[in-house]
Simulated scan of single mutants.
Amino acid sequence: MTEIIRTRLLSKNYGLTEVVSNVNMKLGRGEIYGFLGPNGAGKSTLMKMLLNLVKPSGGEIELFGERLLPGSIEPLKRIGHMIETPVFYEKLTAEQNLDLHCEYMGHYDPKAIREALERVQLIGIEKKPVKQFSLGMRQRLGIARAICTKPELLILDEPINGLDPSGIQEMRQLFRSLRDEYGMTLLISSHLIAEIEQVADTIGVIDRGRLIKEVSMESIRNSKTEYVEIVTSNVKLAAYVLEDKLGAKNFKLIGDRLIRIYDTALTPEQLSKGLIINDVPVESINRRHHSLEEYFFEITRGGESHASSY
């Protein structure tokens, strides 16, 4: 797969604070890359470096197979983006804002402007001044501005902020169609893990400036682990009974009330009976599978584990 983005040991420091640390990242042509991380993890800073808005402290960036330099302009003409809160000319209409943007980018096409507004469901209000727009409408207009020049690469930072559930669903469909119909490559950051799970081909997890995992959604789906989840008010006693009385070797303590048991030989019924006989208070017991959200928290927070293989 041709790589649209590639970074090597990419870093950014502000004074003594390291915001992005030695990130090696790859993004293939025609895929949707979901960029996940807690607030302040470095997502926006990394995206700004990809757009030459912020100068790296170290490392290098390749876009479309060529190294990005401080004076590089040509690669940026092939990119649409929305970073943080989109800013517009408040007294101009949505249509006029896009018209100015296209003229600036050297891609003047009234049909493209109309199509972009249609795709983000802003037809009918495109003649209103932007100062009358809600937060959700501004987000839609920001996405329209990013896609109206038909870029090869689309970089969107928290694009569904301010959207209602219907709007989020529409954006999900839009992102897929941009990939499937135009072969567009998308880099999307979001704190809504469930939404990224539904659109992304690849997941990159960043935490405290470090890219700690880069994995395909297909491999996550194929490796979803089945486990039994027990809620109890006495996890220490439960752990003792599981190991010494029931012979369970593969389980994990999550916080002070939750245990996940990965021994498939033990059924929920056997576990429940064994715990209750040994005076362990069991509030609930359920069979579950890992979701992307659980996968994300496993690798960013970790947990006290009894299972070296997990």
Score class of each variant (00 low, 15 high):
131 K>I: 06
127 K>T: 10
140 R>C: 00
93 T>G: 01
112 A>H: 05
77 K>L: 07
161 N>V: 02
73 I>Y: 13
84 E>H: 02
148 C>K: 01
61 I>W: 04
135 L>P: 03
131 K>Y: 03
4 I>W: 01
60 E>R: 15
139 Q>T: 06
201 D>Q: 09
26 K>Y: 05
42 G>I: 03
131 K>W: 07
226 E>D: 04
36 L>E: 13
279 D>W: 05
301 R>P: 05
30 G>L: 03
309 S>F: 02
45 T>R: 14
162 G>R: 05
75 P>G: 11
292 L>Y: 02
222 N>I: 05
99 D>S: 06
145 R>A: 12
20 V>Y: 14
227 Y>S: 10
235 V>I: 15
309 S>W: 15
94 A>K: 04
281 P>G: 14
190 S>A: 03
97 N>R: 08
310 Y>V: 06
140 R>D: 02
226 E>A: 01
260 R>I: 03
104 Y>A: 13
197 E>A: 00
71 G>C: 04
280 V>T: 09
30 G>W: 04
113 I>W: 07
203 I>F: 15
166 S>Q: 06
125 I>D: 00
254 I>W: 04
64 F>Q: 02
9 L>V: 05
144 A>Y: 12
227 Y>E: 03
181 E>G: 09
13 N>I: 04
292 L>V: 03
229 E>I: 00
260 R>N: 10
244 D>N: 15
126 E>F: 00
162 G>Y: 07
78 R>L: 14
79 I>L: 10
96 Q>P: 00
267 T>Q: 13
1 M>Q: 11
291 S>D: 00
126 E>K: 12
111 K>V: 10
31 E>R: 14
101 H>M: 13
279 D>M: 00
51 L>R: 10
12 K>F: 04
84 E>C: 04
186 L>R: 00
259 I>S: 03
177 S>W: 00
284 S>I: 00
215 V>Y: 14
141 L>Y: 13
8 R>E: 07
187 L>Y: 06
172 R>F: 00
158 E>C: 02
157 D>Y: 04
206 I>C: 15
177 S>T: 13
79 I>K: 12
212 I>R: 09
278 N>V: 01
31 E>F: 07
176 R>G: 11
163 L>F: 03
78 R>K: 14
20 V>G: 11
230 I>W: 08
205 V>F: 07
160 I>E: 06
199 V>C: 07
32 I>K: 05
194 A>H: 02
108 Y>N: 08
27 L>V: 15
61 I>F: 14
76 L>V: 07
279 D>N: 15
282 V>K: 09
221 R>N: 09
287 R>N: 08
143 I>R: 08
57 S>Q: 12
20 V>R: 12
61 I>G: 09
286 N>S: 08
270 Q>W: 09
46 L>T: 15
41 A>K: 14
233 S>V: 08
253 L>V: 14
304 E>A: 05
195 E>P: 01
6 R>T: 11
16 L>Q: 12
22 N>A: 14
51 L>F: 01
172 R>T: 02
66 E>G: 07
7 T>S: 05
147 I>D: 06
308 S>L: 13
274 G>A: 10
172 R>G: 11
16 L>P: 03
219 S>P: 12
274 G>L: 04
36 L>I: 06
21 S>C: 10
183 G>P: 04
128 K>V: 06
112 A>G: 09
306 H>A: 12
197 E>N: 00
307 A>Q: 02
260 R>V: 02
128 K>R: 15
146 A>T: 11
67 R>T: 14
33 Y>G: 08
113 I>Q: 10
297 F>V: 02
154 L>C: 03
